[in-house]
Design a protein around this nucleic acid. Sequence first.
DNA 1: GCCGCCGGTTACCATTGGGTAACGTATGTC
DNA 2: GACATACGTTACCCAATGGTAACCGGCGGC
Lengths: 179, 179
Amino acid sequence: MALEVFARAGFHGASMNDVADAAGVTKPVLYQHFDSKRELYQALLEEVGTRLLRNIDKAASEATDGKSQTELGFRAYFRWVAEDHDAFLLLFGSGSRRDNEFAAAVRRITAESANAIAPLIAVDIDEDHRTTIAHALVGLAEGASRRLVDRGDAFDPDEIAAQVSALAWAGLRAVQRVD
Amino acid sequence: MALEVFARAGFHGASMNDVADAAGVTKPVLYQHFDSKRELYQALLEEVGTRLLRNIDKAASEATDGKSQTELGFRAYFRWVAEDHDAFLLLFGSGSRRDNEFAAAVRRITAESANAIAPLIAVDIDEDHRTTIAHALVGLAEGASRRLVDRGDAFDPDEIAAQVSALAWAGLRAVQRVD
DNA sequence: GCCGCCGGTTACCATTGGGTAACGTATGTC
DNA sequence: GACATACGTTACCCAATGGTAACCGGCGGC
């Protein structure tokens, strides 16, 4: 599939012929569905990103308090990484963050994730700092995932989620206003 | 400078002519110093990454206990980001993580940062999980920085460092063994 | 059985950009 | 003042690749 090809080689590293071959068709057929390489790539980004967000939203919505929301959110995230390495690589293995147009799509995903986290920060720091901290926590998950994916071996997403969310939750409680 | 050009446009987005122009020379002159575009880029990565690591090492070595080591380490990191956006973008704005050869350089940086953090995790979880958590914390800083750099406005690195390191330190204490 | 349409393929075009060879010029020496 | 050397520039080559036009074979209708 196109996702796999782009995930492995990146936007520039994969040619339309590569993508076509992987899909078992030829280039002109690809161009019947997408006007350009960029459009195809962007469509993939959107699809993959939306899937991630939906997973997280669904999981978090089942939580009753902040703590379990954190746990379930991270668990959904790491499960997604575990079962869809390629999707993770496409979004965060990057090259997607290089190009302005693509970066916007990735930012949308991280921003929405951050928005889900921001309310969990209790202290009354200003909105801007709160958002930055929320983005930091998104990075937390990304950093752990990158290592796991790089290592290549399978891993237990729930186990990782337990540790990372413990870290995150304790951390969230500790953020202080700074004068 | 070459750093600025690559930071803005990425490896693929910047041509050797662009780099040469920015440096006030012409392409062949560039090729007197570097055998290829890749080599030039890699040299930049190494230089920039080493600078970051040196800053962190120096700062952390002045700390007496784990808590202040965390604080000083993050402070050095965010100061580096604040005063050298381009370096941050080159390493983590990515595109650098796409290419296997370049990714190795970036991994070296993150791995060394993680190694500095790992010993601060007190619980006796196995080495592998400890390292993953350490990478997560590196991602924490990266996530916050990306937002700050994306926003574009100047920011106070010490203030961010205070909040992020508070989060990190509290989080580190909370990581549990999982059975 | 012949004709036309339609989906797909091959073969091609044009641009971009890494890398280099050939050229020109200034400077210092005899 | 003529020549050689060294350095930088222009001009070029060629491979890769996004995108497309022209071709081809099979299938349904007459």
